[in-house]
C-alpha cells in the first residue's frame, strides 16, 4: 500500500523534474543511486541476519515466555527480542495481537512493540555510520529505557480503559 504511494510519488516527481530540466534529473538519479549503493551492503546484511533471528524465535515459544505472569523477566525478554530484531510492522502487529490472545501480558507486549520500533541493535552499525558512535548509542539506550517506562505505564493504564 505505502509502496504504491511511494512509487507513484517518486514517479510523478521524476516526471515533473525531467520535463523541467533533463540534466538536473540525471544528476538527481545519479546521486540517489550512489547513496543507495553506499548503504546496500549493510541493508543486505541486516535482511539476512533478521531472517535467521525470526527463524529461531517462534510465536508459541515467545507467548509462553512473556505471559502476563512473567513479570519483569518477561518484560526484559520481550524488550530484548524487540530491540535486537527488526520485524516489519505488517508482521509485528498481527504477531503482537496473536501473542496477546495467546496469554502474553499488556506490559510485556508494550515493551516488545516500543523497543521494536525505537531500538535497533542489528541496524546499529548503519546508524553509527550516519550519526557517529555517541549519538547512536545514546539514542538506543535512552529509547530502550523509555520503552520500559512506557510498558509499565501501559500495563497500568490500558486495562482500565
Amino acid at each position: 500500500m505505502s509502496a504504491v504511494v511511494l512509487y507513484g510519488l517518486a514517479g510523478a516527481a521524476l516526471l515533473l523534474s525531467a520535463v523541467k530540466d533533463k540534466k538536473k534529473t540525471r544528476i538527481a538519479l545519479y546521486k540517489g543511486w550512489m547513496a543507495f549503493n553506499g548503504i546496500l551492503p549493510q541493508f543486505i546484511a541486516v535482511i539476512l541476519l533478521v531472517g535467521i533471528m525470526i527463524a529461531l524465535l517462534r510465536p508459541e515459544v515467545l507467548s509462553r515466555l512473556i505471559g502476563s505472569e512473567s513479570g519483569w523477566l518477561g518484560v526484559f525478554l520481550a524488550s530484548g527480542v524487540g530491540s535486537i530484531t527488526l520485524i516489519p510492522g505488517f508482521i509485528a502487529f498481527p504477531t503482537a495481537a496473536l501473542l496477546l490472545r495467546g496469554g502474553a501480558g499488556i506490559t510485556q507486549i508494550a515493551a516488545f512493540v516500543s523497543s521494536l520500533m525505537m531500538v535497533g541493535v542489528v541496524t546499529l552499525s548503519v546508524e553509527i555510520s550516519y550519526f557517529g558512535k555517541r549519538a547512536a548509542i545514546v539514542r538506543n539506550v535512552v529509547a530502550y529505557i523509555f520503552a520500559l517506562v512506557v510498558a509499565v505505564i501501559m500495563g497500568l493504564v490500558v486495562p482500565v480503559w
Partner: peptide, 25 residues
C-alpha cells in the same frame, strides 16, 4: 523471511532514494 524482507526493502527504499536525489538537486 529474508525474501519477504527483500521485497519490503524494494517496496520502500528505491523511491525514497529517487525522492532524496530530487530533493538534493
Amino acid at each position: 523471511t529474508a525474501v519477504s524482507g527483500t521485497w519490503e526493502m524494494l517496496a520502500i527504499i528505491p523511491p525514497i532514494f529517487v525522492l532524496l536525489g530530487l530533493l538534493d538537486v
